[in-house]
């Protein structure tokens, strides 16, 4: 079951779509496709520069990603961050990390990978599951529980755990100098957030994560621009777009909580169709409004039992 859920996004991503490169802001680019988004930071800074990639897409996306990267820079890939263990975020680790420089020669880097691959503790654990058969060089080389920060390409980079939200291993990446956040699966402009209960996801955590995103983002003028947010799937965004999404998730959560409060069963909650005003916008065959309601219902019930 876990593998099936883990593969959920990957199966939706197999259709090969053209990759577009958009300049998000500062040093940061968004490699966008229907399969999902990859965030790339490129910079120049004495003795500490190169390429940092947030998520590596599916294995099938690896070649287009590398081709697009080659057009942008000849700099070496030095860091990869996985925002979750989904295979549309970490499926290309193996191939993409092979293109980086070997950092083991001077004893500075990890032995397993040719680039440093960072992930939250639980993401490392899940990617290391034998049934996923991820080669060693595709596994995270370093993990963190709450926060990891360092300077790269002349700007502070923060890897912030938002777990539990989509799963128990979610992270966002904040490029403080460029003023860009790569949000991973906690934010999408194409579908409801997938609350993966089997992998430790939580609707309350998802709402909390979105509110935290809103704390970090600062609009430039007229409630737009400023901090740019790259969602796991969909288009380039800013705070106003995250607000729209946060509002939607909160409202649907509240509607389901109200039904639970009234003693409704899961079937009755689904029959109430409380996502009817958002389904046209966010319901997808692979993750429908009904599935979202079920995940919220079970997540809230689980929370009450704890």
């Amino acid at each position: 079951m876990r593998i099936l859920l883990c593969l959920f996004a990957a199966t939706t991503a197999f259709a090969q779509t053209p990759m577009e490169v958009l300049h998000a802001r500062g040093n940061v680019y968004m490699f966008a496709s229907d399969s999902g988004n990859v965030t790339v930071q490129i910079g120049e800074h004495r003795d500490n520069d190169g390429v940092l990639m947030v998520d590596t897409g599916t294995a099938q996306m690896a070649e287009p990603i590398l081709a697009a990267l080659k057009k942008l820079t000849s700099k070496q890939l030095k860091y990869v961050v996985n925002t979750s263990a989904d295979l549309d975020h970490a499926g290309g680790n193996d191939i993409i990390s092979s293109t980086g420089g070997t950092r083991t020669a001077e004893g500075r880097g990890p032995l397993a990978a040719e680039v440093n691959i960072y992930a939250q503790d639980n993401t490392l654990t899940r990617l290391s599951a034998p049934e996923l058969h991820i080669p060693e060089k595709g596994l995270p080389t370093m993990s963190y529980e709450q926060l990891k920060d360092f300077t790269f390409n002349g700007e502070a980079v923060q890897l912030i755990s938002e777990a539990p939200a989509h799963t128990d291993g979610d992270s966002i990446v904040f490029f403080r100098g460029s003023n860009v956040i790569s949000a991973g699966e906690i934010f999408s402009t194409v579908t409801y957030p997938m609350i993966d209960l089997a992998r430790g996801g939580s609707i309350q955590g998802e709402v909390k994560a979105l509110n935290h995103l809103l704390e970090l983002t600062v609009p430039e003028i007229s409630q737009e621009g400023g901090t740019m947010v790259i969602p796991g799937h969909g288009r380039l965004c800013d705070e106003a777009d995250v607000t729209e999404y946060r509002d939607m998730v909160t409202i649907v959560r509240d509607r389901v909580a109200d039904l639970i409060e009234k003693g409704k069963t899961l079937d009755e909650a689904k029959a109430a169709r409380v996502t009817r005003d958002y389904d046209g916008r966010y319901s997808q065959p692979k993750w429908t409004g009904d599935m979202f309601v079920e995940a919220i219902y079970k997540s809230l019930k689980q929370g009450k039992q704890k």
Binding site: A32, S222, R235, D241
Partner: peptide
Amino acid sequence: PSKFAAHTW
């Protein structure tokens, strides 16, 4: 612009 471009008011 492409469907991946940012939206504005």
